[in-house]
Design a protein around this nucleic acid. Structure first.
Lengths: 199, 199
DNA sequence: CTCTTCCGACCGAGCGATCGCTCGGTTTAG
DNA sequence: CTAAACCGAGCGATCGCTCGGTCGGAAGAG
């Protein structure tokens, strides 16, 4: 029985999109030619176009996959946690940190290539981004309403916490000084201080 | 006597680099052709190349200007503040927030186009970025040593604070719901909670 | 003062290379 | 035999960049 070695990714990407994702991370969308995607995927250029309509569509699929993966994991984490505000908060922050630390490629693209999306796809992406932010907003709001969180600025604190977790994708290395567990523990502690969790 | 209307920018950019900067923000470096930079600057393509060696050099100049502006402002803010840790911290966080809110274009490019830099320029840029981070690290360290800041994770908290300030450039709008003063006040309050400032 | 020279600022046209993408096939699995 | 999977070659467009100039104003010569 095989062990799932990609704990954060619910559904795997196709090899082609995986290749495209890596190229987009390293060179950016406009800096990546379809020829290097094809070479990385072990295909010819027409081989690529047999599976995907355009380079733009590859980007859209990669970004949609990233956002829906994160959202689904967030929902699961919230559903699996106790219902009190602090437990919900810990679950969501932990999920955010893990995703951005262990799924760096999709996480990085999800916020660095927004401007490369066609207008309609960009609107959809931003809607997904806002929905993700709203999860945190609601958890923080609930904690403030329950008197568990003492921050005087729930909206801004919520955004600050999401962005500090998001940017973990920019610097975290699995082989760096912090183990995954240490990383999550420390960011949980920091995030709790940021919203002013009691205790 | 003229009033300086660009409070965050110590030295102005040339009109050409200003045009390049705007294009890079909107389309990204690889998504921007020199022809659109030229059009935006009101010049022909050879006109551009009379002043700058290459598109790459324009990017390097824009990014270097952004980083050195921020660093100089940070030094000035620290020098102008009282020497106690909390005052130094407030000065540095305020400076960071103001720069990323009011100088959105250079701030955005400074962290979104790193991968578009040539290898040597990228090394230099990252060195400047690290120096900027070190300013915050030192202030936080001093506060922890003085018993003013209670965070159990100074290094990670320092990075979290810098990144939450940095990402202000991604969403803040001058004509949005938050006035500049409100923005700075709230981020100061949030950052103080994040490092666990007493009182 | 005029005339000549010179130089920095600028541009029309276009170079070779590469871009995203497609045509007209062949190969391969069932 | 069919259909999905795949590819060599190459299309028109655009890329970064340059060639060979024009032009106006400052500087020097008479």
């Amino acid at each position: 029985m095989a062990i799932d070695t990609t704990p954060s990714s619910l559904t795997p990407l196709s090899p082609i999109l995986e290749a495209a994702q890596e190229c987009f991370v390293e060179q950016g969308y406009h800096g990546t030619s379809i020829r290097v995607i094809a070479a990385r995927a072990g295909l010819s250029v027409p081989g690529l176009y047999h599976h995907y309509r355009s380079k733009q569509q590859m980007l859209q699929d990669v970004m949609k996959h990233a956002m829906t993966s994160l959202y689904r994991q967030s929902e699961d984490a919230l559903a699996a946690a106790e219902t009190d505000p602090l437990a919900q908060f810990n679950a969501l922050v932990g999920c955010l940190v893990r995703f951005h630390a262990f799924e760096r490629a999709p996480a990085f693209i999800a916020y660095s290539e927004i401007r490369s999306l066609d207008e309609e796809a960009r609107r959809e992406h931003i809607a997904r981004r806002d929905a993700q932010q709203r999860l945190m907003d609601q958890v923080v709001e609930a904690g403030v309403a329950a008197g568990e969180f003492t921050t005087p600025h729930p909206t801004e604190a919520s955004r600050a916490i999401v962005t500090m977790c998001t940017s973990v994708a920019q610097w975290y290395r699995m082989d760096g000084p912090l183990t995954p567990d240490e990383l999550v523990d420390r960011y949980l502690a920091i995030a709790r201080m940021t919203i002013g969790a009691r205790g």
